[in-house]
Computed example of a mutant assay.
Amino acid sequence: MNRMSVNLSPEMEALIDETSKREGISKAEVIRKAFALLKISETEKTKGRAIGIIKEDEHSHEMRVIGKIIGL
């Protein structure tokens, strides 16, 4: 596996640290998941699709789009 050095803003470093602690995973795993999500976004963008935010109704289990992630 390759290593890479990256300069992070204090806010981004805090976000990675908080996510790591909350999810109980390493900081490296947080970053790998972020890149996996970016890859999905890029793949879907080439198909004319977008990443969205959905809400599932707890009773009917129907899902509805409540937002679209822009800028990925």
Results as ranks from 00 to 15, higher is better:
Glu58Gly: 10
Arg32Trp: 03
Glu56Gln: 15
Lys55Ile: 07
Ile69Pro: 08
Lys39Thr: 05
Ile40Glu: 13
Ile53Phe: 09
Val6Gln: 09
Ile70Asp: 09
Met63Ser: 14
Ile69Cys: 10
Glu18Thr: 03
Lys45Leu: 11
Arg64Trp: 06
Arg3Trp: 14
Ile54Val: 14
Glu18Lys: 08
Glu13Cys: 06
Glu13Asn: 11
Ser9Phe: 06
Lys33Asn: 07
Leu37Asn: 06
Met12Glu: 12
Ile70Ser: 08
Ile54Arg: 14
Ala28Thr: 07
Lys33Ile: 01
Leu8His: 01
Ser26Arg: 00
Arg49Met: 12
Lys33Leu: 05
Ser41Arg: 07
Glu44Val: 15
Ser60Gly: 06
Asn2Trp: 09
Arg64Ala: 06
Ala14Asn: 14
Thr19Met: 02
Asn2Lys: 10
Asn7Gln: 13
Ser41Val: 05
Glu13His: 11
Ala14Asp: 14
Gly52Pro: 05
Ser5Cys: 04
Lys33Met: 05
Leu38Ala: 10
Leu8Ile: 01
Asp17Ile: 06
Leu15Arg: 08
Glu58Arg: 10
Ile25Gly: 04
Pro10His: 03
Lys33Pro: 00
Ala34Glu: 01
Gly67Tyr: 03
Ser41Met: 05
Thr46Asp: 08
Val30Phe: 03
Arg22Cys: 07
Ile40Thr: 13
Arg49Tyr: 14
Met63Pro: 12
Lys47Tyr: 09
Met12Arg: 08
Ser20Pro: 00
Arg3Lys: 15
Lys39Arg: 10
Met4Thr: 09
Ile69Tyr: 13
His59Gly: 12
Ile69Phe: 15
Leu37Pro: 04
Ser26Gln: 01
Asp17Arg: 13
Glu42Arg: 07
Met1Glu: 01
Leu38Glu: 10
Ile25Trp: 02
Glu18Trp: 02
Lys21Cys: 04
Lys47Ile: 09
Ser26Ile: 00
Gly71Thr: 01
Lys45Tyr: 09
Ser5Gly: 09
Val30Asp: 04
Ala50Glu: 15
Gly24His: 01
Val65Asn: 04
Asn7His: 10
Ile70Ala: 07
Asp57His: 13
Ala36Ser: 12
Glu42Ala: 05
Gly24Thr: 00
Ala36Glu: 13
Ser5Glu: 09
Glu42Thr: 04
Lys45Phe: 12
Glu18Cys: 00
Ile54Lys: 13
Lys68Val: 14
Gly67Met: 03
Ile69Ala: 12
Ala14Cys: 06
Leu72Pro: 02
Arg64Glu: 11
Ile16Gln: 03
Lys45Glu: 13
Ser41Asn: 10
Ser60Cys: 08
Arg32Val: 02
Lys68Trp: 11
Lys39Cys: 05
Glu18Leu: 03
Ile53Ser: 07
Ala50His: 14
Lys47Pro: 09
Leu38Lys: 14
Lys45Asn: 08
Met63Trp: 15
Ala50Pro: 03
Thr19Gln: 02
Ile54Cys: 13
Ala28Ile: 00
Ile40His: 13
Leu8Met: 07
Pro10Arg: 02
His61Ala: 10
Ile25Asp: 03
Gly48His: 06
Val30Pro: 06
Glu62Ser: 04
Lys45Pro: 05
Lys39Asp: 13
Ser5Asp: 06
Ser20Gly: 02
Ala34Met: 03
His59Val: 13
Ile70Val: 12
Leu72Asn: 02
His61Leu: 13
Ile16Glu: 02
Leu15Cys: 04
Leu37Thr: 04
Arg3His: 15
